[in-house]
Simulated assay, not measured.
Amino acid sequence: MTNKKPAKTGNSASPQTNRAQKSRPQNNRAQSSRTQKSNAATSGSSLMPLLLVVIFLAGLIGAAQQHMLPYGIAGMYLTLSLLTFIAYAIDKSAAKRGKWRTKESTLHLLALMGGWPGALFAQNVLRHKSVKASFRNVFWLTVVANLAVLGYGIKTGAVDMFI
């Protein structure tokens, strides 16, 4: 009969320390990650993006009423914003249920076409696609591109063909 010593685990802490460690949750890293994501989503849901959406859409409607912009442009932004918001809501629901998801490229295309106000509203209200940095970066590029095209269309008079 041989006497085997218990294998060392590399932990030379006292028994009191071991008991304290055992009473802590084992998955601190996962909890920390969830807390950081939750805090990021909460802090990202400020009123500023929602205010931006309201000001932009109100400005479009006001410009159309002053005959500075065709009503069709304002209607297009409102319609695409509603469709984009619905697409985000469907994707959020699918994510919760583990079902088929909407491609990120589809969400970006909707934003690029003029649905970015609805996307921004959905990101803040539904808290969907509001944490993933790579998605947010591409999203803001679509916003800038869309506004650049709108500005160019207004400056050159190309939006007048929607009258």
Rank of each mutant, 00 (worst) to 15 (best):
123 Q>A: 08
57 L>G: 00
15 P>M: 03
89 A>V: 04
28 N>Q: 14
96 K>F: 07
45 S>A: 15
98 G>Y: 09
163 I>M: 12
149 V>W: 13
134 S>Q: 14
146 N>Q: 09
121 F>Y: 11
9 T>I: 07
63 A>K: 06
145 A>Q: 01
109 L>Q: 07
131 V>T: 15
40 A>R: 12
39 N>K: 01
111 A>K: 00
5 K>G: 00
160 D>A: 05
12 S>K: 11
14 S>W: 02
142 T>F: 11
6 P>L: 12
128 H>Y: 06
25 P>L: 06
124 N>G: 15
147 L>D: 03
6 P>W: 05
110 L>Q: 00
60 L>C: 09
114 G>T: 01
66 Q>Y: 02
138 V>P: 01
10 G>E: 05
97 R>W: 06
156 T>V: 03
138 V>Q: 09
59 G>T: 05
20 A>R: 10
138 V>I: 14
31 Q>R: 13
12 S>E: 10
90 I>S: 07
23 S>H: 13
14 S>Y: 03
56 F>W: 14
76 M>L: 15
99 K>P: 00
1 M>P: 10
88 Y>C: 04
2 T>C: 01
85 F>K: 09
95 A>S: 12
49 P>H: 08
122 A>V: 11
51 L>N: 06
12 S>T: 13
92 K>Y: 05
43 S>I: 13
132 K>A: 04
17 T>I: 13
41 A>N: 05
20 A>F: 03
42 T>H: 14
87 A>C: 08
127 R>Y: 06
1 M>N: 12
163 I>E: 03
130 S>E: 13
61 I>F: 09
75 G>K: 01
29 R>A: 14
127 R>P: 02
15 P>R: 05
13 A>Y: 06
112 L>Q: 07
126 L>T: 04
113 M>Y: 06
147 L>K: 02
93 S>R: 15
50 L>K: 11
123 Q>Y: 10
107 L>N: 09
147 L>T: 03
67 H>P: 00
81 S>A: 12
133 A>N: 06
1 M>Q: 02
36 Q>F: 07
53 V>F: 12
91 D>F: 07
108 H>R: 00
20 A>K: 08
11 N>K: 03
7 A>V: 14
48 M>I: 15
49 P>K: 08
96 K>H: 11
94 A>H: 10
1 M>K: 11
64 A>M: 06
108 H>P: 04
154 I>V: 15
16 Q>N: 08
147 L>Y: 06
74 A>M: 08
73 I>Y: 04
155 K>R: 10
162 F>R: 02
136 R>G: 11
13 A>K: 09
126 L>P: 02
93 S>L: 09
52 L>K: 00
154 I>E: 03
128 H>C: 09
103 K>V: 01
144 V>K: 08
97 R>L: 14
64 A>L: 03
9 T>R: 07
104 E>T: 14
163 I>G: 04
113 M>H: 02
15 P>Y: 01
64 A>T: 04
146 N>T: 00
20 A>Y: 02
120 L>K: 13
45 S>Q: 02
29 R>D: 13
78 L>R: 00
11 N>Q: 03
93 S>G: 05
156 T>L: 01
65 Q>G: 08
109 L>C: 07
163 I>P: 00
27 N>D: 15
82 L>E: 02
134 S>F: 05
74 A>W: 05
81 S>G: 15
152 Y>P: 01
16 Q>E: 15
118 G>F: 07
105 S>Q: 13
134 S>C: 06
141 L>N: 11
128 H>N: 08
37 K>G: 00
30 A>Q: 14
116 W>D: 10
149 V>S: 12
